[in-house]
């Protein structure tokens, strides 16, 4: 029995460690949700991102790290310098060694990267039944379907069909490749209380946190699209002028 359990945990670990497209023999259609950042004029909705950060802090961060995002980056989603300082200070990070050669903990500062829930991969696996909760910094780019996929996944928990044998410690999800996911359902109606008073439906929570994860993966997306529009306008004018010059120069050849 014990051996069977360890074996199942091992399989679960491998499954959870696998990347999104890894298991899906059949391609799972992900719904196309409306996000404010879609399209060439898309921008991030700062209120939604701030709610998403709140969800990350209160729900995701207890298992998932976000190593590539620093608290100072939160200024890019509309928090003031003082707010960022306060948000950072709610977390504790390990620093050191000090002049006694000891490591010590201190409240996080804006320059610190997001505090990780576990000191290393092994600790993360040990705490999660062998499954490793992946780092979420670029998760929205590392999964086919991006934010749409993440949102669908978070509210995609279902009772398994009768012919599916769930492995120990696994949950059935309609959108996870292979359908067996080690992460339990965490997003329910009112599972967070939004500071800005927005009604926290499961749909709203998954929407906000998926948008936040997209921002975390590509914080400069809005800047990119805005520059793109300017570059394109310039090039259209340039192309028109160049075509006129070309016509004029070649006029004596036609």
């Amino acid at each position: 029995m014990l051996r069977a359990l360890t074996k199942a945990a091992g399989v679960a670990a491998v499954l959870a460690g696998l990347s999104a497209p890894a298991l899906g023999a059949e391609a799972i259609e992900v719904p196309d949700y409306d996000f404010s950042f879609e399209g060439i004029f898309g921008t991030y909705d700062e209120a939604s991102l701030q709610r998403g950060y709140q969800v990350y802090e209160q729900v995701c961060a207890s298992c998932h790290s976000m190593d590539l995002v620093a608290y100072r980056h939160l200024e890019w989603i509309g928090y003031s310098e003082d707010q960022v300082k306060a948000l950072a200070a709610q977390n504790t990070v390990t620093d050191g060694p000090n002049d006694q050669g000891e490591m010590f903990t201190r409240p996080a500062e804006p320059s610190d990267y997001f505090a990780a829930p576990y000191p290393n991969v092994q600790a993360a696996r040990a705490a999660n039944g062998g499954a490793y909760p992946p780092d979420l910094s670029v998760i929205a780019q590392a999964r086919a379907g991006g934010a749409d996929y993440l949102k669908a996944l978070l509210i995609g928990y279902e009772d398994p069909p009768p012919d599916v044998d769930l492995m120990a410690g696994m949950y059935y999800n309609a959108y996870f490749p292979g359908h067996q996911i080690a992460m339990p359902q965490l997003v329910y109606d009112d599972s967070v209380t939004y500071q800005d008073g927005t009604e926290a439906t499961a749909e709203q929570i998954s929407h906000d946190v998926s948008a936040f994860l997209m921002w975390a993966a590509e914080p400069h997306m809005v800047e990119r699209k805005r520059s793109g529009v300017k570059v394109m306008l310039f090039l259209v004018v340039f192309a028109g002028m160049m075509y006129a010059v070309k016509r004029k120069v070649w006029a004596d050849q036609h």
Partner: peptide
Amino acid sequence: HPYMTVKDGFAFILFVMFFAFFVFF
């Protein structure tokens, strides 16, 4: 020059637009 420089120049700009579309969007 000037025949191919202007013709290639025009073609280059169209190509840069194609390139820029992917880079930015």
